[in-house]
Design a protein around this nucleic acid. Structure first.
Lengths: 337, 337
DNA sequence: CTTCCAAATGGGAGCGCTCCCATAGAATCC
DNA sequence: GGATTCTATGGGAGCGCTCCCATTTGGAAG
């Protein structure tokens, strides 16, 4: 947008001409292909420098039928998922891995109808070399479309009720189980669960883990108290839980935001944490650290989640056959339990 | 990637042939251009449906010299900037605005050298129709390269020491001033400042606002106590500040994370908030809400920040001449002051 | 000095689309 | 009724690159 001559970008032909070689040779040099004499290679490199030549990625894409980009589709509709640092960290991880493979990252937030339509078009038009799909809802049509698209697709987290061919997930069940076992090992016997949305696999899996642990201890699990993964949702769920089950002495919250909300409600209700009620969260975000008291939580490797998703996609694009991956979690004990 | 015939995508020629028209007519129909009879238009539409035709965006891009994508470049090197929900919200806002203009979002995290190189290439190869540039450091070469690129460029936040032609920014000075005035109006006279990195414009601007307010009240500003925008950085800065200036009765923290860190340090030091020391943050993130006590802070329209950046870019791409934009902030008073 | 093979080279046909332009027909105007 | 506009249509030349393939070249082998 600077002033100056509106000169066109130099093309490969011009580079070739200046270097006194054919376009083919110039192309080989740029692609680091063999069958080029040292002299001509250097001549081309000189011409490239002299003209300030940069290869036109679009033309290259058309000729090679590869776009050089991978898409990360986030299908969640509720804004809260984006407010969450989780989302950002995944992006960072994926971005780093794609960078290694020299792929660009296209980010598609398929919240609105229009957004979803664009994703569909992307899938069908092969507008990217591959797709990572996250935060799918139950029966999300995007899942089927992705499977049908003749394009590498990696799922981030499993869609509800189905295990796709390629996915990366966090061990939600195991993490929730460990968190709950931790509460039980602290002598708590009346542990309730504040769940995330139960129409997501994450929400279900974490409740399942909680349930498993409680059952294994020979106790009765509480029914899921559904929150929406937000701080206020957690606070409300905690209030409801307290009203119905005042005897509660432990709470497993399916994420840190809700855990923080639970802490707030407990404080307002005059219950001491962890003396009266112990609380455990999930995610290990900043929120957990700054909460009062600092929240015991389940750490998950969010950055690795994004990174591995991207690596799997790259492998797929390169014609390999990676295997699904489930990342481990780790309990981080703080003062809330 | 599903099984089935590995048939090629249908091309526009095939659509035209099936519809019994020329490629030109078919193209006009797809582009909603005039000079097409009703009959042929319908025939083409039918053929499109029958073949499941989707236009190849790469070929289109090559012919039109427009990629259909805009890039959002985040130049920050420290991971903390990404951990912050700020980043995610901006993306969401930008994404929504780009969606309206039917542009795809390419996200470039130019943290590593390699990342920066790719951005440079993107800029020079016109790999996108326009670029939004965020989180530039002092003397970041990316700024110059962007200005030189013959491509629409919008800055998110101003680079240190220069006002680019087109940018969107938050009124950091005004917000910081208001926050500090608020502390002063509460009767605090020894207000210190925990700043962000002073090699960023945000860090400087917020300190400037603080300074203005203190000077206007006829008091002496404290020197900047530099943090790194993280919770622990804030805690450390608070500790340092307390050691050097134990008389402090008010703290302006340049963001919420550092504000939360300051609260932690104060609690550990046995100072009561807000009784002994009042604290104000900046950003209005979840952290501010869950902090104990909840943090008074300066709310900024993060989503709008991203949205307006994208809108400005779209205007630029469409050949218009938008004017720079500075978004207002708003003080949110909670219990920490 | 031939024969043969591999490396080096350049020509040219795409990739799938847009868009300019020439042509033909239909409508409009003195 | 012929000149003048339109609108509709299709042909074809790109957009800038890759890559197959035919040709040339330089030795090594016989």
């Amino acid at each position: 947008m600077a002033g100056g001559a509106p000169r066109r970008q130099p093309t490969l032909d011009e580079v070739a001409e200046l270097a006194g070689v054919s376009r083919s040779v110039a192309s080989r040099v740029l692609n680091n292909a063999p069958h080029v004499s040292r002299a001509k290679r250097e001549a081309v490199e000189r011409a490239v420098r002299q003209l300030g030549y940069v290869r036109n990625p679009t033309a290259r894409a058309l000729a090679t039928r590869q776009t050089g980009a991978a898409a990360l589709v986030v299908a969640g509709e509720e804004p809260s998922i984006y407010a969450d640092p989780f989302f950002a960290q995944v992006i960072v991880g994926a971005s780093a891995a794609l960078e290694e493979a020299d792929l660009h990252l296209m980010l598609c937030l398929a919240a609105s109808d229009r957004g979803r339509k664009r994703v569909e078009e992307l899938l069908r038009s092969k507008g990217a070399d591959g797709v990572m799909l996250m935060a799918l809802r139950e029966d999300d049509p995007l899942a089927r479309m992705a499977e049908e698209a003749e394009m590498p697709v990696v799922f981030g987290g499993r869609p509800v009720g189905s295990a796709p061919r390629w996915y990366v997930d966090v061990d939600n069940v195991g993490g929730a189980r460990e968190a709950t076992e931790h509460l039980l090992s602290r002598g708590r016997t009346r542990v309730a669960a504040i769940c995330g949305r139960l129409d997501t696999e994450v929400g279900r899996a974490r409740y399942r883990g909680y349930r498993d642990a409680v059952l294994a201890a020979g106790l009765d699990p509480y029914p899921p108290q559904e929150g929406d993964f937000t701080e206020s949702g957690g606070a409300a769920a905690m209030a409801a839980s307290l009203a119905e089950h005042p005897e509660v002495d432990g709470v497993f919250a399916a994420n840190d935001n809700m855990g923080a909300g639970a802490l707030r409600t407990l404080r307002e209700a005059g219950r001491l944490v962890p003396d009266d009620v112990a609380v455990v969260g999930f995610d290990d975000l900043v929120v957990a650290q700054v909460a009062d008291p600092p929240l015991t939580t389940v750490h998950q490797p969010i950055n690795a989640f994004g990174r591995e998703m991207a690596r799997m996609l790259v492998a797929l694009i390169n014609g390999q056959e990676p295997t699904p991956l489930i990342l481990p979690t780790r309990l981080v004990i703080r003062s809330s339990s």
